[in-house]
């Protein structure tokens, strides 16, 4: 029973991490149709921001948290301004390849100017402590990750439902032209989407980095692959889909990790991607996506 609860908490925390990242991808995709491969690099940027802040002028590990989140949001704005603005009205292919390119450039900038080797980053000590409830011990980090994700999603919901920009963003995912005709600036909507995706990635980054304790130039690529899978699983561009897909993927992964015999766990990622592939073939638009046939206008 204790083992079960521990693994459940673990599954939820992994799922929350994927949900945070997938949500960021989905917001950007729903508005400008960009499959943002460079999303993982937001995590890397957050990590290096924390590393530099800690080694140069702000050794207090508490300050690392806002700096990481802010760094990711800032990086998202820069990516949008520098690269994605130029290809705004282009096809999905152009978008996916540009984002791919941005991701390689950012990774290699860190390789050139910092190092390929991982650099240690300190986060507040309580994040690596354990919570004890009766005979049950669970890591604080995992509980906190789930709770913070829930809060972040709730805040996002409020923003989307109650504020003008939120409504504009929801409307833009249906019909961008109509939003612009209502007198709302396109740049504003798109930038807000990127800022939100950056903030969400920053929150995820803080947890990822606390868990790893170090940053390296390629740390963003695996989480972002998983976030993609989560997004596609839930239906690209659907925000609920991203959250559900993320949590489902996390639970599925932990389930595989726990139930599979030792020698097969090495294949875990292959199994995850394989199952997702099969789901996609059965439901090409994801579990919550709209049914679109090959050739229909997308999104």
């Amino acid at each position: 029973m204790e083992y079960f609860i521990q693994q459940l908490v673990n599954a939820l925390s992994v799922g929350s991490e994927y949900a945070l990242l997938a949500l960021g991808l989905a917001i950007v995709f729903s508005i400008i149709g960009l499959v943002n491969f460079a999303h993982g690099e937001l995590i890397t940027v957050a990590g290096y921001a924390m590393f530099f802040a800690a080694t140069t002028w702000l050794p207090n590990p508490w300050m690392a948290l806002p700096i990481g989140i802010g760094g990711a949001a800032l990086a998202a704005i820069v990516f949008e301004k520098v690269a994605f603005r130029a290809i705004r009205n282009a096809s999905t292919n152009t978008g996916i390849l540009t984002a791919f390119g941005v991701s390689i450039v950012v990774q290699n900038i860190f390789v050139i100017f910092v190092a390929t080797r991982p650099k240690p980053v300190q986060t507040p000590a309580f994040l690596s402590s354990m919570i004890e409830i009766g005979s049950l011990t669970v890591p604080t980090l995992q509980v906190l990750e789930t709770v913070v994700t829930a809060i972040a999603i709730a805040t996002l919901l409020i923003i989307l439902k109650k504020t003008t920009i939120g409504m504009a963003m929801r409307a833009a995912s249906k019909d961008f032209m109509a939003v612009r005709l209502m007198g709302i600036k396109a740049n504003w909507v798109i930038q807000s989407a990127f800022i939100i995706s950056g903030l969400l990635a920053g929150i995820a980054a803080v947890f990822i980095i606390s868990r790893r304790g170090a940053v390296d130039p390629f740390m963003g690529s695996v989480p972002v692959l998983k976030a993609f899978v989560a997004c596609v699983l839930g239906g690209l561009g659907s925000l609920q889909g991203a959250v559900i897909g993320g949590v489902a993927l996390g639970v599925f992964e932990v389930l595989l990790q726990v139930t599979l015999p030792q020698e097969i766990t090495a294949y875990r990622d292959a199994i995850v991607f394989g199952v997702v592939g099969l789901v996609l073939v059965a439901f090409p638009q994801g579990l919550l996506g709209r049914k679109v046939e090959l050739g229909d206008k997308e999104a």
């Binding site: 499959v35 999905t92 692959l225 991607f273 592939g277 090409p284």
Partner: peptide, 17 residues
């Protein structure tokens, strides 16, 4: 059978698998 961005991610799945 899968078109658009989802199809492209499926090709990525082939690479990872």
């Amino acid at each position: 059978r899968v078109s658009g961005a989802a199809g492209e991610i499926l090709t990525l799945a082939v690479l990872v698998i």
